[in-house]
Amino acid sequence: AKSIVISVEGMTCNSCVQTIEQHVGKMNGIHNIEVSLEDKNAVVIYDSKLQTPATLQEAIYDMGFDATLAD
C-alpha cells in the first residue's frame, strides 16, 4: 500500500470532512483516508494497483473541492 497527501481547499466544517472521507473511502483500493480541516488535506493509504495519485486527486476535485497533489 502507498500513502499520499492531497491538499484540499474549500472545506468549512466537519461535515465537509466526513463527506470526503465517506465518498473516497468507498472507492476501490482505499485502505484508509483521513481528512483534516485544520491542515486542509487528505492523507490516503491506497492500493497502487487500483488507484493513482491522479485518480485520488480527481475524485476529490470532482466533488467540488480544489484538490492538489502536495509534493
Binding site: G10, M11, S15, C16, M63, G64
Partner: peptide, 9 residues
C-alpha cells in the same frame, strides 16, 4: 463548504 462545492460542480 457544501454550497461552495455545489457551485463548483
Amino acid at each position: 463548504g457544501c454550497s461552495n462545492a455545489v457551485t463548483r460542480v
